[in-house]
């Protein structure tokens, strides 16, 4: 449904993203995660044709994503990280204005979303809190029943109850076959709703897999307590998560027997082996 091929974007000499390749299938919720400056927003702006890629292409339904192709534009719903709308309009006027860009009348759909998200449509845009503005942004992105939803930090500013409603809406969309590109910092929500997750670092996609596979890729979180912890640490060549007095916590990515052999040489007080959480995986890729 959404295919990104060798997408590269440089801002002068500064790298935005480099040779990013990604295919997102119809009806899939794809999580896109990475720290600030990793290239998430650049990727989204390229998908939305707000900026021009240095090289590479984006395809939607195997058609090149041309900014003048109105058929493609109708297929996409977009929720930016920060929602900026026209302050002089009321919510209801804003929604009507958005509806005016489509030949079809989406008032029923708008009404459904407004009720679901509990939005006061009589308020002026300038009076809205950040969370309420985000809710209006969600309606604007979903009102025309798009085939692809591009969501940038969709839940930031939303209260927990509305977040739940929003996840429900996303799952409804997924059931209809909508493809959802979901950029987020919130690992637990990605774990909850995404089919697959892509981790972006320094402009490169460093991992793409399902949450299940990512957390089951032979990585282990090891906690060792020993008076010889400094010597053990020296011999280990692994990603250290934390060190506190005689306790060392690290990600172990090799054959576990190697670790056991190594630990046999020291006096160990305690060893704990755990499966990694999504947070641990994220940290592993980012160290």
């Amino acid at each position: 449904m959404l295919e990104i091929k060798n997408l590269t974007k440089y801002y002068g000499d500064i790298r935005g993203i480099e040779k990013l390749n990604l295919t997102i299938n119809k009806g899939e919720i794809f999580g896109f995660i990475g720290p600030n400056g990793a290239g998430k927003s650049t990727t989204i702006k390229c998908i939305m044709n707000q900026i021009n890629p240095t090289s590479g292409e984006i395809y939607i339904n195997k058609v090149i994503n041309d900014k003048n192709d109105l058929k493609l534009k109708k297929m996409i719903g977009y929720l930016p990280d920060e929602v900026h709308l026209y302050d002089d309009l009321t919510v209801s006027e804003m929604l009507e204005y958005s509806n005016s860009f489509y030949k079809r009348n989406y008032s029923k759909r708008i009404k459904y979303l407004v009720e679901k998200l509990n939005i006061d449509t009589t308020k002026k845009i300038e009076e809205l809190s950040l969370g309420n503005l985000k809710k209006v942004g969600i309606v604007l992105a979903m009102m025309h029943e798009p085939k692809i939803l591009v969501l940038d930090e969709a839940t930031s500013g939303l209260d927990p109850l509305i977040k739940e409603t929003f996840y429900e809406l996303l799952l409804e969309e997924k059931a209809k076959g909508t493809t959802i590109f979901f950029s987020s910092h919130n690992l637990s929500e990605l774990k909850r709703i995404c089919d697959r997750v892509g981790i972006v670092k320094d402009g490169h996609l460093v991992a793409v897999d399902s949450i299940k596979e990512l957390t089951n890729n032979h990585l282990q979180i090891i906690t060792v307590v020993s008076k010889d912890i400094l010597k053990i640490k020296k011999e280990l060549n692994q990603d250290i998560i934390s060190q506190d007095n005689n306790e060392l916590k690290f990600i172990f990515k090799d054959d576990i027997n190697i670790l056991i052999k190594l630990l046999c040489n020291y006096k160990i007080e305690k060893v704990l082996m755990e499966d990694p959480s999504i947070e641990d995986i994220f940290m592993h890729y980012y160290k």
Binding site: Q50, L70, P80, H84, Y86
Partner: peptide, 12 residues
Amino acid sequence: KTIEFLHSKPIT
């Protein structure tokens, strides 16, 4: 920054 809204609508 309202261009993000406007540009996402089906207009060139």
